[in-house]
């Protein structure tokens, strides 16, 4: 197993030609990636505003739904229904006048003839 040794900087290639070539290469890579990024950003520039608009619309619709739910509940509340019913001349079942009487001597209708046969109806589809 070889031990790590401190680099020997005297052996380092510090010639201008080598570093120039490296700088050109890295710069070219950097520019290419930067162009790629800017291009991607340019191509998707409408995504973010559309997303934001959709989120705002969703929030608006949620609020609207909640408000409508509450409005329906308040419009169909017991107190409102009661007020409406009384305003339209209705009265409580238990409080309405009740009378009792006996049926007179009218003849009862004849009893139905009991069925002795079983009828089966089949429908084909």
């Amino acid at each position: 197993m070889s031990r790590w040794r401190f680099p020997d900087f005297s052996q380092l290639d510090v010639s201008v030609a080598t570093w120039r070539a490296r700088a050109v290469r890295y710069l070219a890579i950097y520019i290419a990636l930067a162009l790629l990024l800017v291009g991607a950003r340019a191509m998707t520039q409408d995504v973010r505003p559309a997303l934001r608009a959709a989120q705002e619309r969703e929030a608006q619709l949620t609020t609207l739904r909640d408000e409508l739910e509450l409005r329906v509940q308040s419009l169909t509340g017991s107190a409102r229904v009661r007020d409406w019913a009384f305003a339209n001349g209705m009265r409580r079942f238990a409080g309405s006048p009740t009378t009792t009487g006996r049926f007179g001597s009218e003849k009862l209708p004849p009893p139905l003839k009991p069925r002795t046969t079983l009828e089966v109806k089949t429908e084909w589809k």
Binding site: E67, L70, Q73, G77, A79
Partner: peptide
């Protein structure tokens, strides 16, 4: 609803 406290049944 919408950051406000609402009592939909009013006085109930």
């Amino acid at each position: 609803v919408g950051g406000e406290r609402v009592y939909p049944q009013g006085t109930l």
